[in-house]
Design a binder for these strands. Sequence first.
DNA 1: CTTTTTTATTGAGTCTTACTCAATAATAGG
DNA 2: CCTATTATTGAGTAAGACTCAATAAAAAAG
Lengths: 248, 248
Amino acid sequence: MANPNKDSSTVGLSVGEPRQVKRRTRRPRAEREAEILASARAVFSERGYGDAAVAEIATRSGVVEGTVYSYFETKRALLIAVMKLFFEELIMDTESGLAAVRGTENRLRFVIRRHLETFTSDLGLCRVVIREARPDVALYDEAILDLNRRYTGIALRVLEEGLAAGDLRSDIVPSVIRDLIYGGIEHAVWRFLFSDGELEIALLADQLADAVLGGILTQSAHATDTHQEDTVRRLERAVERLEAQVAG
Amino acid sequence: MANPNKDSSTVGLSVGEPRQVKRRTRRPRAEREAEILASARAVFSERGYGDAAVAEIATRSGVVEGTVYSYFETKRALLIAVMKLFFEELIMDTESGLAAVRGTENRLRFVIRRHLETFTSDLGLCRVVIREARPDVALYDEAILDLNRRYTGIALRVLEEGLAAGDLRSDIVPSVIRDLIYGGIEHAVWRFLFSDGELEIALLADQLADAVLGGILTQSAHATDTHQEDTVRRLERAVERLEAQVAG
DNA sequence: CTTTTTTATTGAGTCTTACTCAATAATAGG
DNA sequence: CCTATTATTGAGTAAGACTCAATAAAAAAG
C-alpha cells in the first residue's frame, strides 16, 4: 500500500563497498500472488508446462525463484491455480451468454461456437490445459478434473434439457454427445494448427454443429422422422380411400 | 553371434583386486536397438514420457545410459521411434480388417470400434501418444504428425468413398467428421478412466456411431428434407392421379 | 593363431531445473 | 522508537538429460 511500484534502485549503505544493492519490496500477499499468477499464465502459455522455468516466472514477477515457492507449493500447484482462474472465467462467461439463447438447437450451436472461440483466442493456454489435464489417473489433480467437469457440464445440461423437451432423439446418450462435441472441436482446431489454412471459426462451428445435430447419413430417416412418415401415410391412405370411391 | 547371452559374471584379471567385473556384451546393432525400443515402450507406457527416465530404459535393456544415446539422439527421438512402430502396426492391422467390411455405414462402425479397442487395450501408450503428439507447432515432430495423418486417413478415406457413393449427405466435410470421430472417442475414453464405471467397448462404439451417423435432433430436418421432399412428392402424385381420375 | 583395426559400450562428468532452507530485512504492533 | 513477525532472498541439493574420452569386444588383416 505504501509504495507499490518503487522499482529496483540503489540504497547506499554506510559501508563503502560497491556491493550491488538489495532492495526488497514487500507487498500485500494478495497482490504478489496475483502478479505471480499472471506471469505464470503468460509463461505457461508461451512455452508450455514442461518448458516453462519457474525461474522465468519469478523474474517476470520481479521476485526470486524461492519466493514463488512461498506462494505455491509446487510448479504443478501453480499450474492448477492458473487453470482454476481460466476455467472460472470461462464458465461464467459461457453461462451468461447461454442464458440469452433459446431453443435446444440454438443453445448447442452457441456452446460449440463459444468453445471454438475460446480455444482459438487463448490457444497457448488451452494447449497446456489439454496436455496437462490428463495425467496419470493419480488423483492429486482432482482439482483440474473437477474444473473440466464443471465446464463441460454446461453442454451436458443443454443436452439433457433438450432430451427432456423432446428436441433430441430419445435414444442418445448426453455424455457421449458431449464428448463428441468437445473432442471434435479439439481435434479440428489441432488440424488447423498444422495445416496452413485460415481457421474460419464461424464456418467450422456450423460444420461441426450440422454434423452432430443432423448426422451424416443420406437418409437419416432411421427413427428420426418416423412421425412425419406416419402423418404422410395417413394422408396417403385418405387419398387412396378417395381414389377408391371415385373409381367405384 | 558367438555367445549372445552370457550374462554378467566375474572375470578374474591377473590383478588381485576385488574389483567388480566389467563384462561387456556386444550385440548386433539391430538386436540391441530392438531391445532398447521394447524397454522404452514399456517404460513410456508405464510412467508417461515426462516421468520416464532414460536411465531406467537403459537398465531394463541391460545397458548403461550412454549406450541408449548411441542408438537414439535424444529421448524424444526414442519416443518417436516407439510411436512409429506402434502406428505402423496399428495402420496395417486396421486396414486389413477394414478390407473385409462392405458398406459405408459398416465400415465407419468398424473403424470406430477398432480404434476404441486399440485405445483401451494399449491405454498407457495411447496416453503418451496423445499427450506428446501435439507439442509446439515446432516441426521437428513432423514425423509424429505424419503418422497420425496416415492413421486417421483411414477413416477419412471411408468418408470420402461414402460421399462419392452417395451414402453420405453431400454437404458434410469429411475431415470435420473424422475429427468428431477420433476426438469423440478420445474424450469418451478419458471420461471412463476417471469414473469408476466399466468401459463397455461395444456399447460405447454403437452409441458414438449412432450419434455420428444419425445425428441427434428429433427432426433432423436440415438436409434431411430431401426425404421430406420425397414424401411430399408422393402425396402430390397421389393427388395428381386423383385429379386425373376426376377430370377424366 | 596373432596382431591390428574398428566401434559398441562404458561411466564419469556437465548442465539445467525443480525444490529447500537458514539468513535477512521490510513491515506491523506495542 | 523498538521489537516481533514474516516476506524475501540466494545459495545449495537432487534428479535427470545429454556428452565424451577411454576401454574392450568383435572383426579384419597378416
